[in-house]
Design a binder for these strands. Sequence first.
RNA 1: GGCGCGUUCGUCUAGUGGUUAGGACACAGCCCUCUCAAGGCUGGUGCACGGGUUCGACUCCCGUACGCGCUGCCA
Length: 438
Amino acid sequence: MLSGSASRLHRPVISISAARALPCSTGFSPSITALKRNTEEAAAAIYEGLQWLGLNWDEGPHTGGKFGPYFQSERTEIYERHLKKLQDDGHIFEDQGALRFCSPREHVVVDDLVCGKIDFDLTNPGTHPDMTVRRADGSWIFHFVNVIDDIEMKVSHVIRGEDHLSNTPKHIELYRALGATPPRFAHIPLILNHDGSKMSKRDEGARVAAYIEQGYVPEAVRNYLCLLGWSPKDNREKIDIEEVVKLFELEKINRRNAAFDRDKCFWLNGQYIAQMSLDRFTELARPFLEKAKIDISNERYLCDVLGSVKEKIKLLSEQPNWTSYFFIEDYEFDPDAVKKVFGKPEAATRLSALRDEFATIDKWNLETLESTLKNLVQKFGCTTGDLVHPARVAVSGRSVGPSLYHMLEVMGKERVLARFERMLASLGTLEGHAPSRP
RNA sequence: GGCGCGUUCGUCUAGUGGUUAGGACACAGCCCUCUCAAGGCUGGUGCACGGGUUCGACUCCCGUACGCGCUGCCA
């Protein structure tokens, strides 16, 4: 079994990648599920986050396993037993009611899978005081339960943040005093914010909920996290989880801390969206559309609409904004777009002509729509844009959107003609259009 | 302060003594084009600094600086 202290999302992602590459199971130490309720909630958030990322583990509080119980609060007897052993062997002394472990005062070499061999000099009590293992009130100290849990659960590899590197020699002293062989350690770099400051649990990049709300795709976030401190070394950026597991080696993890790059994560998300199936896209988009109260009961239409905007979208949360006008008739008109496109009287004339031509179409599809419009362009001697822009504003109220032909095809003849009609009518009434100008 | 770890474009990285220091994001310009994207092309920016070792250092060694971590009866 392998353990990782899941204080941040990045670590478990790396841990799981590593574990899948190694032939062993994955789990999380009960030591992270401390007595305090907020800690348990934090741990639960990590578990949920991992599930969202599509990563699973073998043992832990909610999955079970053969080394339970997995909550620290239920493991008191286990800790008592090990403490007793240490006391019997004379490693413990009392200090103001608390219990401390008496350090052997030696050099301890940590042989880390990522950082290599590091020699720590623990001979000076002034700089390395004897560690407390239990408080006066009977509660346990993290370092102690952490070691006990890993022994009890037969943890073979401890993968955790580099912030624990300096604590590791103390842990090793404990393993030795208990007659246990220390596991292999792998201390992985920390994730920093873009400005170089340390990323805390409350920072956006560390909150899974933030990714979900903003419309990130789980596989993209997972991919991005894998690339922080690790690389397939072949210039690939988009790399699926199976491939990561195949290539992953703890020894190849970088030692330097990495800054979280919002832009790149965003870009990767767009890559995943562009390349995913329309079915998957629809599945992921649904909650966002529902939240925006868009009527998506017509599955077929929904799918067609999403198909027309899929390649434009980088974040799922952009969905409603890109598609709302497909579903409602009282969509808003962007004043700037209207002004720019219909500022000239020819625009209305051309739209009117286009309406007449479209009305005669039998086969309402991309090809016919395009050829019909292009014919009219010839006739007027204008540019394609001179016809496309008015049509776009008429049916969507805005100047940006999917390819016009695609949009019109999806909307259908009836809807499009009605919208043209309304546009023309509003131009006539609001502006009192005269065919000629001074 | 002490101890530990780190330092290649702004960011993520490839690179393990001889490379025009490669890729990606971001940025700029061009092309394409019905808009916005996408895509294609081009461009600029980098080996923290100082000493060694070597015929030759981004690569090895030693310092310095800077960053981060630990130094709790926090986890």
